[in-house]
Simulated assay, not measured.
Amino acid sequence: MVERKRELRRDEKRGKVGGVCAGIANYFGWELWVIRIIAVTALILATKVTLVAYVIAWLVLDKESKKAKAASGHSEQAVREETRVERTADGRTIEVKTKVWEAGKLPHYALGDIENEFAVMEKSLRSIESYVTSSEFRVRHEINRL
């Protein structure tokens, strides 16, 4: 496998202030929120040094070009490739994201999707439970045993 040369560049599309944190996250392959937490913590603990280093990085680092972005795998197409289609036991097809945070969704949106899925499953489970505990189920079960 040929390993490509990584370059440290600013990613203004994913960045909030200049794209320095996003560029660092791309370079090391880390989650963007981790880099932001490190940057904010460094800003709190060593304000002047961190601020000067950030401004220097902002001025010195080149912007990430579209060509470099496509080569690094951070394009929208690469985000779509993080999903695969699977069939459930009841025959439905669903898209499964291999890693939600790499698929481009913010954590609170991903959590909302998960909560919705659990709500649907809970409704289905309640329906099954009410049927199994009903007298109709017992009667049908006894008739089937005959």
Rank of each mutant, 00 (worst) to 15 (best):
K5C: 06
K5H: 06
E7F: 15
E7D: 11
R9D: 04
K13T: 15
K13R: 14
K13S: 14
R14M: 04
G15R: 03
G15D: 01
K16S: 11
V17Q: 02
V17L: 09
V17C: 05
V20T: 05
C21K: 01
G23H: 01
I24P: 04
G29Q: 06
E31C: 05
L32G: 07
V34R: 12
V34K: 14
I35F: 04
I35H: 03
I37T: 08
I38W: 08
T41L: 14
T41N: 06
A42K: 05
L43A: 14
L43Y: 14
A46Q: 11
A53Y: 02
A53W: 05
Y54H: 13
W58T: 11
W58N: 12
L59W: 09
L59K: 07
L59E: 02
L61G: 04
L61C: 07
S65V: 04
K66Q: 02
K66W: 00
A68Y: 08
A71K: 11
G73W: 09
G73S: 07
H74M: 02
S75G: 07
E76N: 10
Q77H: 14
V79P: 03
E81M: 15
E81H: 12
E81K: 15
E82W: 00
E82H: 06
T83R: 14
R84W: 01
E86H: 07
T88P: 02
T88A: 06
A89C: 02
A89M: 06
I94H: 01
V96W: 03
V96C: 03
K97D: 00
E102M: 12
K105S: 07
L106D: 12
P107S: 11
Y109A: 09
G112C: 10
D113P: 00
N116C: 04
N116A: 11
N116K: 15
F118Y: 12
V120A: 14
E122R: 10
E122Q: 09
K123D: 12
S124V: 13
S124L: 10
S124G: 13
I128K: 14
T133N: 14
S134A: 04
E136W: 09
V139K: 03
H141F: 10
H141S: 04
H141C: 01
E142V: 15
I143C: 01
I143N: 01
I143E: 03
L146S: 12
L146G: 11
